[in-house]
Design a protein around this nucleic acid. Structure first.
Lengths: 123, 123
DNA sequence: TTGACATATACCGATATAGGCATATAGGGT
DNA sequence: ACCCTATATGCCTATATCGGTATATGTCAA
């Protein structure tokens, strides 16, 4: 048997560095494919294939706009990963057992994190 | 070319569900290999191989104890994953509102709305 | 229609993965 | 010494990956 298919879940989709790159770019705002191609310096078919994988695990959404396809981040699909790693957080942050510290960090993450201001969540 | 080697980084190591299972078991405490074998119902060589991968990316440590090898979780290696996903937390922040509320109650409404409206073109 | 552009897909090659089975290595007990 | 247990590794197969090149699909413009 070969490895678990990359289209299985977000874990596998995100294991590929280029796909993480794509998501990182999309985090700044939706973009057409060619924009990603130029920005990442990858071959266009390769980008399309990676986008397909990301689409199949729900990490990105597409919208047709003329002859362009606008891809948009759908970070919700990363939640399973976040939920899983979160359980290990204490392994590198033993201060984590105090609720106030938890909340402090939570808040910090909100205005310290890079702007993703695309507001892609909806529904 | 094939996929990036699973021994490359934690992202790839953790993309394999069995390896996540192993880590989950080890999260409860260090264990010898046979313990994992019984607990996961996998073939012993398979467990050993997965443990090797986990070891090579630093996700577990080993200690020799007689003729047993005690594996122990080293969750610090998961931090890169956590750091990466954390930036996307806002994408599913609807659920997060609940925590925002708690935060505001504790800290006195320090929370400011998230900035939006990037989507700007560029380059 | 023709042509140019934007994106997706088909096909191919090389790689290395997960898992199975058999065996090697190593330590403990007798 | 021997045997038994515990674990690691080697060899093998099937699979499906990633990346490349070529082509198909689709959309706009003249």
């Amino acid at each position: 048997m070969a490895r678990v298919a990359t289209t299985t879940d977000a874990f596998n989709a995100v294991a590929e560095p280029r796909r993480r790159q794509i998501l990182d770019v999309l985090a700044a705002g939706e973009r057409p494919v060619n924009d990603l191609v130029r920005r990442l310096g990858l071959a266009q078919p390769l980008v399309s294939k990676h986008l397909r994988v990301l689409r199949e695990v729900g990490l990105v959404d597409v919208r047709d706009e003329g002859r362009q396809r606008i891809y948009r981040l759908n970070g919700r699909s990363l939640k399973p990963i976040h939920d899983w790693v979160k359980n290990y957080e204490q392994a590198w942050a033993e201060r984590f057992d105090r609720l106030d510290v938890v909340l402090e960090e939570l808040k910090g993450a909100e205005h310290t994190g890079k702007e993703q201001g695309d507001g892609s969540d909806d529904e």
